[in-house]
Design a protein around this nucleic acid. Structure first.
Length: 430
RNA sequence: UCCGGAGUAGCUCAAUGGUAGAGCGGGUGGCUGUUAACCACUAGGCUGGGGGUUCAAGUCCCUCCUCCGGAGCCA
């Protein structure tokens, strides 16, 4: 009799097995009772009949509280009446611990309460499904880059300077010196590509913005590829390919989870190359056609993004933004100096920007000019400027937000559920 | 920071200015195929804090605190 996981029960029909898990629920009916067990791989029920087990096992029922840790032994049977389609004719139960009164009950709870109990909420079925999709999304991302010749080189989290100067950074103390938590690995990626050609970094990133929306976290995970000898068009192709790969991977590897989440998978099946590519100016026209009264030159808000993406049936790429609203390192459009060669990929169904990136300025003197225009300290960028002195080449890259992508794949409404322990403006614990 | 909303039992929510209730969870008992099982009984409250109006405040007014979601910023 071996240790078995619920997900593998189908292979053990007619055999005695031991399942290790936690009490999800129980139902008693006098001389027979049911123990619904979860073990992280699935849910099943044990049937405990008075005539089949010793009295001391049968009498456990009143004491078994929700989330008590137990092992149960028994014969595996196929039965439609059981959750998961299989059940155990229980012969023995070993109690590891009787859980104290569990705060999360089977009825609904508010999100504030659930977030306070995030360490326990993770056990619930839906949260388990979302985080499994997250793990698979990370696998899909790595698979995409690894199998396309990218080298994974991670970039520092402690940095000395605020690279873009626009967003607020978390400040910390570093042996008596001021340091900041990184908001992007891009600048370091730009150094790395001159050695490896194609690289990506993948790690946590930090923004001290006091954002209070469902689309923002202060600590989130981002994958950032960077490619040497790559223009804006090719860059858009990499972003599009990545998103298609993630959607396809989820459909192939997360069917069970997407079902638990009641995700309309037809939305994911529609994610196919090529994505429509429209310029910022065309996007502004779309907004105005729909009566949004958007003025050329401004940045899109969450609502604007939704309106634009609703115009298309799937993700859409928006490119060539007004240079004035973009970072100093973005290359200008040679055909129109007012435009920067940036691109965003907007996910459908109102999920908004999941990718932001573009072609970088690779000319030394132009870059110095931009640094000064943005009133950034030139000294801090000496190493970055060096990259333009020793064999500079056109290059591009982008960042993809993991939690936004996972939320979209799962069809959930708030980023906080797409990461095990979210960090938000008013949430540092648990 | 600004705008809006909410704080009542462990949880989710009710309660014309007039004795604070229900469902779930807890406890006790019943039931041999239950599916957020069901049935009966039972315990559980400084109505977020402070101040005010009133014969009377969960309810009206002021103030503070906490949380929620939206704007800004962005992935």
């Amino acid at each position: 009799m071996g240790k078995t996981y619920i997900a593998d029960l189908a292979d053990h029909v007619g055999k005695e097995v031991i399942l290790n898990g936690w009490v999800y629920n129980k139902r008693s009916s006098g001389k027979i009772w049911f123990l619904i067990l979860r073990d992280g791989t699935g849910y099943t029920q044990g049937v405990v009949a008075q005539e089949n087990v010793p009295n001391e096992v049968f009498d456990l029922e009143p004491a078994l509280t929700q989330e008590s840790s137990v092992s149960m032994a028994g014969l595996v049977k196929k039965d439609k009446r059981s959750i998961g389609g299989y059940e155990l004719d229980v012969s023995n139960i070993k109690v590891h611990q009787i859980a104290e009164e569990y705060p999360i009950t089977k009825k609904e709870h508010g999100t504030a309460f659930l977030m306070d109990n995030r360490h326990l909420w993770l056990r619930s079925r839906k949260q388990n499904a979302v985080l499994k999709v997250r793990a698979e999304t990370v696998r899909a991302i790595r698979d995409y880059f690894d199998s396309n010749g990218f080298v994974n080189l991670d970039t520092p989290i402690f940095t000395a300077n605020a690279c873009e100067g626009t967003t607020t950074l978390f400040e910390t103390e570093y042996f008596g010196q001021k340091a900041f938590l990184a908001q992007s690995g891009q600048l370091y990626n730009e150094a790395n590509i001159m050695s490896f050609g194609k690289v990506y970094c993948f790690g946590p990133t930090f923004r001290a913005e006091k954002s209070k929306t469902r689309r923002h976290l202060t600590e989130f995970w981002m994958v950032e590829p960077e490619i040497a000898y790559c223009d804006l068009d090719e860059n858009m192709g990499w972003g599009e390919g990545l998103i298609c790969h993630i959607a396809e991977w989820a459909l192939n590897n997360c069917q069970e989870q997407l079902e638990v989440l009641e995700r309309d998978t037809s939305q994911l099946e529609k994610i196919k190359s090529p994505f429509p590519r429209i310029s910022y100016t065309e996007a502004v026209d779309i907004l105005n056609t729909k009566g949004e009264k958007f003025e050329w030159g401004g940045d899109f808000g969450g609502g604007d993004e939704t309106v634009i993406s609703e115009h298309f049936d799937g993700p859409v790429i928006v490119h060539r933004f007004p240079a004035a609203i973009k970072a100093f390192y973005m290359k200008r459009d040679p055909e129109n100096e007012k435009l920067a060669l940036g691109m965003d990929i907007l996910a459908p169904e109102g999920y908004g920007e999941v990718i932001g990136g573009g072609e970088r300025e690779h000319d030394h003197d132009t870059l110095v000019k931009r640094i000064n225009e943005h009133k950034l300290p030139e000294d801090a960028f000496q190493w970055y400027l060096d990259l333009r002195k020793y064999g500079t080449v056109p290059h591009s890259g982008f960042g993809l937000g993991v939690e936004r992508t996972v939320s979209w794949i799962c069809g959930i409404t708030h980023l906080r559920e797409a990461i095990p322990f979210p960090r938000m403006i008013y949430r540092l614990e648990p």
